[in-house]
Design a binder for these strands. Structure first.
Lengths: 69, 69
DNA sequence: GGAATATGTGAAATATACTTTACATTATGT
DNA sequence: ACATAATGTAAAGTATATTTCACATATTCC
């Protein structure tokens, strides 16, 4: 699976660590790490919580056009 | 949880049954039904597959603004 | 270079998404 | 009214998201 570089970049731009984001979202640091590294397939509610915390939308972080490599 | 009326409406507008959509997405009819009825919290990859099949994006079907009731 | 902080990762346990089977209810057409 | 298709739902099983605990590597900063 591909890494979620957008998520990482938005998080860093907001000066948050993986642990910070995890705490605000109410999830483990490992979970955030796994999502950024594309190690699994999160739940949509978790995605929504992450997006709200980072002030972006689902399409911003999780949508991929048909022809993404 | 709230029902996903947008998803139902797009699906119906495309003249697909829950079973049709399920088959195209590669999932059970019950799963589609449960998602439309807000009975659970699907995986983002499944959401993406549903969106692609219905020619919409994540924000169209699954994003909710802060102040949705 | 060493201390502290941030990230990557692994293995075992738990919660929950999703399947399978099955049946009941609601709509639609004739 | 009857047949048929579409939807709602329930229980038991399987797959996998997420946690917890633990440690190793990278990064930063003094």
């Amino acid at each position: 699976m591909g890494k979620n570089l957008k998520m990482k970049s938005v998080r860093v731009h907001k000066d948050m660590t993986q642990a910070d984001l995890a705490a605000r979202v109410g999830v483990t640091r490992q979970t955030i790490n796994a999502i950024e590294n594309g190690d699994y397939n999160p739940t949509i509610n978790l995605c929504i919580d992450i997006c709200r915390t980072l002030d972006v939308t689902l399409d911003d972080l999780f949508w991929k056009e048909e022809n993404d490599e």
